[in-house]
Structure formats: C-alpha cells, structure tokens
C-alpha cells in the first residue's frame, strides 16, 4: 500500500511539475488577484520577453516564502496592505530595491528605505445615500456622532482595511479616544459589522443605512458593473472624507524584493516597468486606484472621485498601531 502511494505521488509529480524556471522569467507572489495584474504583466512580457509566473496567495504568503527559505523561487511579492508589507519586512524575507527609476518616481514616504515600494494608493472614505444625506463632506470623527445612530454600515472591524483605519485613528488620537470612538461607531451600526466592502453600498441602496465606509476602488468598479451593482452605485455618493484637521486615510499596494530572489535583475526590471507611465495608467485605472507616478494625470479614480489629500501620518506609523487597534476592536465587541 505504501508502494502504491509513492507511485501515485511520483506520477503526479511528473504531471504537475511546474514550468521550469527559465533564465528569462520572474516569479511573483501576490495577494492582489491576478485578473487585476494580468494586463500589465502581459505587456511587460511583450515588451521585454521576460515571462512572469504569478501565484495568487492570501493568508500565509509570508510564511510560505520564509519556509521555502534559501531555495525559494520567489522574486517579488506584491501586497495590498501596509500591515502585510511591514510584516514581510520585519520577518526578514525582503531586501531593499536598488533602482534609479524607483528613487526618481516614488516619493520617499512611499518607499521607506526602499524596503518596499508603493505602486498605487487608495483611500478609505465615507459614502452616503444620495437621497437621504445632504452633506458632501465629512470627517471620520463625525461618524461617531449620535445623529448616525442606526444608520451606519461597515464590514468586520478585524478586516485588514478597517484594522489599518482604526490603527490610523489610534495613532492620531491615543488609546482612550480611539476606544470610545470604536464603541460609538459600533453603537451607530445599523447591522452587525460583516460582509464585504461592496455590501455596504447595497445596504445603503436598500435603506438599511445612510452612511458607510468603503475603499475607493470598489466605488469605481461598481460604477462599471453591468449588473445589480450598478444600482448600488447609483444610490450612493462619495463624501470628501478626512480626519478632523488631517487628510484622508490611505493604504497602498506595494512590491518588495524577496531576500533570496533568484531572478533579481528581472524583478527590478518589472518594478521599474510597473512604475512607468504606461503601466501605471493601465494598472491604476483598471482598479480605480491613485497612481504613485505623478506624471500620470487625470487617472480614472481622480475623474470619478476627485483628488485626494493623503493623511500626513506615515504608513509605517499606521502599521505600528495595528495590534493595539485589533485589541480595541475585540474589547469593544465590535464584531459581535
């Protein structure tokens, strides 16, 4: 019986054996869904002849690269949340990206020590019912006011997007204020926090709530939808959102170079390529994000939502407050 097992293992090995790592290739581990990357990756391959092998992972990307160790095929990791990125750097699985293009194109605060390099930014803002809400601007602090009681919707407080948002709030206002803020938000919630970001738009359309928190690119994607989601989009309007006396909470999608990258040169070439005007326009517009390359004007996101002023708080500072923010969310019973 054991012999049989070995046989089937071997047979499968030979069938499944992944494409051998060619000299001209680069291996990308990504937590962003490949459908959003493919247009850029395909044009990169067309322009340079370098093949991109992308594997879409979610939880455990960092652990996989760490376990694969010195022989890991990973060259680049593309991550969609600053917490994930900082954790990867802290885990020692990255190395700085040395590239003139990066230094020239990306503002320093979006590439701390070049350990990671942001590709796009997105904002986490408030949307409101077109019908039932008159105001066009709001502060995050306002959401905790009693006038929104039973009218506010949000996804789980432990989701990385909200975790980063609460971390930013905590970094701005300190623990005591953040705790009462999180409790007050929960008190205002029309339903138990849950579902996805788009669900809050549906809940506004259905009349369940009047205001909700959402990532900007979902608004863009819903505006293009050819199904009922278009109806959700039509029911909402984005509000100009900021911290009182600050800017809008933003997060990034970013790349980091794997410490043991076997195709380091190709990896850097891909990073440079993704920062170019052409790729930035394709990648950022495809997903309604704000490009980091300032030369790309009038992105789809700006056209739809207007320009955004990112909060002055550094993303690394936000990432440092993630753990205590997660604790506060538990303490407030936010998700129960």
């Amino acid at each position: 019986m054991i012999g049989k097992t070995h046989l089937s293992l071997l047979a499968l090995s030979s069938c499944l054996l992944a494409t051998p790592v060619l000299a001209q290739s680069v291996n990308l581990y990504t937590t962003r869904e490949p459908a959003l990357l493919n247009p850029v990756l395909e044009s990169f391959t067309k322009d340079t002849g370098i093949k991109v092998n992308a594997v879409f992972l979610k939880d455990g990307l960092q652990e996989r690269i760490r376990a694969e160790g010195a022989n890991s095929p990973a060259d680049l990791m593309l991550l969609v949340d600053v917490g994930e990125i900082n954790a990867a750097v802290a885990a020692g699985i990255t190395q700085p990206i040395r590239s003139e293009t990066v230094d020239k194109v990306v503002p320093a605060q979006l590439r701390p020590d070049n350990n990671w390099v942001a590709l796009t930014q997105r904002a986490r803002i408030v949307i409101a019912s077109k019908e039932r809400v008159a105001q066009d601007a709001i502060t995050y602090e306002e959401l905790a006011e009693p006038k929104w009681k039973g009218k506010f919707c949000i996804r789980s407080g432990q989701h990385p997007y909200n975790n980063a948002f609460f971390a930013a709030y905590l970094a701005h206002n300190g623990e005591a204020k953040a705790e009462s803020y999180i409790k007050a938000l929960r008190g205002n919630a029309a339903r138990k926090p849950g579902g996805g970001d788009r669900d809050v738009a549906r809940d506004i359309q259905s009349g369940l709530c009047d205001v909700a928190i959402i990532n900007t690119y979902y608004i863009g994607l819903m505006s293009q939808a050819k199904n009922e989601q278009k109806g959700w989009f039509d029911a909402i309007k984005p509000l100009r959102t900021s911290f009182a006396g600050g800017g809008t909470h933003v997060n990034v999608s970013a790349v980091a170079l794997a410490r043991n990258a076997p195709n380091k040169d190709n990896a850097v070439k891909l990073v440079d390529y993704m920062l170019g005007e052409k790729a930035q326009a394709v990648y950022a517009n495809g997903n309604f994000e704000y490009p980091v390359n300032a030369a790309v004007k009038d992105s789809a996101a700006v056209q739809l939502l207007g320009p955004v002023t990112p909060d002055s708080l550094s993303l690394s500072e936000v990432a440092r407050h993630r753990k205590p923010a997660a604790d506060l969310v538990d303490k407030a019973g936010f998700d129960s």
């Binding site: 499944l16 054996l17 992944a18 494409t19 291996n27 869904e33 490949p34 459908a35 959003l36 092998n53 992308a54 594997v55 879409f56 979610k58 095929p73 996805g196 970001d197 788009r198 979902y218 994607l221 939808a225």
Partner: peptide, 20 residues
C-alpha cells in the same frame, strides 16, 4: 499549490476576493 497552477476553487476565490 505550485507556481502557475490554478484550480477551479482558487479561480472562484480570486473573483470573490475582488468582490465580483
């Protein structure tokens, strides 16, 4: 899963995590 191998389940998940 190895690099470059997708299954039906991972494809469904990819779409679901984009909210579509």
């Amino acid at each position: 899963r190895p690099l470059g191998v997708e299954t039906l389940a991972t494809t469904v998940y990819g779409h679901a995590s984009r909210g579509v």
